[in-house]
């Protein structure tokens, strides 16, 4: 087990190195300058600015500097936010996004799994159709439509919850629901498909023949076996939820990282693009590792350390 994890960590570092390098060179291909009103400045002035931020060096030299600093934990300073270290920006902004993403993930996974299980157990009844309908709606209607509708009807018209901003638990409810629609639909659809398949398998028939209660069958035997594919898709989904949604954050005025990431690309804020991308990559590889470890816990037949089985 420890050996396996060590090996995975080495792979993770290699992956991160490749991601960072690719991002760096791709980013340099974005046309335009990172400075506002750059075109209005005289050449001398432009050179002073380029010098200050080390943008006059050839790209490979810049790359080398960046990688060395990155290893030291220095991700540079933002261009758009005068003199703000990128690490500070990430630390400030990632909190709300991660909180929102986790809440949406938990809410989404629980509701989705319940819907999926219900649909599978009550196959081809109105419960099944209702659950499927919710899943289809959740998947096909973009979250910003839900966000907009909820904001207008629940917050503006009914006044039950605040319209926007980020000041306390009640401010997180609407964005969480809006963001949870997608995981709900994904979890429900995967869960239903897997459950239907598992319920038709021989060992369920055996359990039934042995006289196990239907609750025992569905929870202990069917659910656990059907969870594997759900965990596989929910892992990466959790990362994309936690790294922030541009539209949801904009609509509800959440000071998160998603909006910031898109903006940093639009304004060529190189250090922020790099920093955010590396952060996303780190989260992604960590979650992938956790998902792989979870497989072993959910289904003991999967041996992650390999060989000895």
């Amino acid at each position: 087990m420890a050996k396996y994890i060590m090996k995975r960590i080495v792979y993770m570092i290699i992956t991160l190195f490749i991601v960072a390098s690719l991002t760096f060179f791709l980013m340099k291909l974005i046309p335009g300058s990172p400075f506002n009103n750059f075109e209005k400045l005289s050449e001398v002035q432009q050179n002073i600015l380029l010098d200050k931020y080390g943008l006059k060096d050839p790209v490979p030299v810049q790359y080398f500097h960046y990688m060395v600093n990155m290893v030291k934990g220095d991700l540079g300073v933002s261009f758009q936010f005068d003199n703000t270290p990128v690490t500070e920006l990430l630390v400030n902004r990632v909190g709300p996004s991660a909180q929102l993403g986790l809440q949406a993930m938990v809410v989404g996974a629980i509701i989705g799994i319940i819907l999926g299980v219900l649909a599978a157990l009550k196959q081809n009844t109105w419960i099944d159709y209702l659950c499927t309908f919710i899943a289809v709606v959740g998947k096909s209607i973009p979250s910003f439509i839900f966000a907009g509708l909820m904001q207008y009807y629940i917050a503006v018209k009914l006044g039950w919850l605040p319209v926007m901003l980020w000041r306390g638990p009640e401010y997180t409810i609407l964005p969480t629901i809006a963001l949870a629609m997608f995981p709900i639909s994904i979890a429900a659809r995967f869960m239903r498909t897997e459950m239907v398949e598992v319920l038709g398998s021989d060992y369920i028939t055996l359990a039934k023949a042995k006289g196990a209660s239907s609750f025992q069958i569905s929870v202990k035997h069917a659910l656990r076996n059907a969870l594997i594919p759900v965990v596989t898709v929910l892992g990466p989904l959790a990362v994309s939820l936690m790294t922030g949604s541009l539209v949801i954050e904009q609509i509800f005025g959440v000071p998160g990282i998603g909006e910031q990431f898109v903006k940093s690309i639009n304004v060529n804020d190189y250090p922020v693009i790099m920093g955010t991308n590396i952060l996303f990559a780190v989260l992604f590889v960590i979650v992938t590792l956790i998902v792989d470890l979870l497989y072993g816990i959910i289904d003991p037949r999967i041996r992650i350390s390999g060989g000895k089985s």
């Binding site: 904001q151 319209v163 901003l165 904009q250 609509i251 000071p255 909006e259």
Partner: peptide, 18 residues
């Protein structure tokens, strides 16, 4: 002061008196 980047959301906050 608060930052709101979505114009419709800003209008909603205004309508709600926020």
């Amino acid at each position: 002061f608060n930052v709101s980047k979505d114009p419709q959301a800003s209008a909603n906050a205004f309508t709600a008196g926020e």
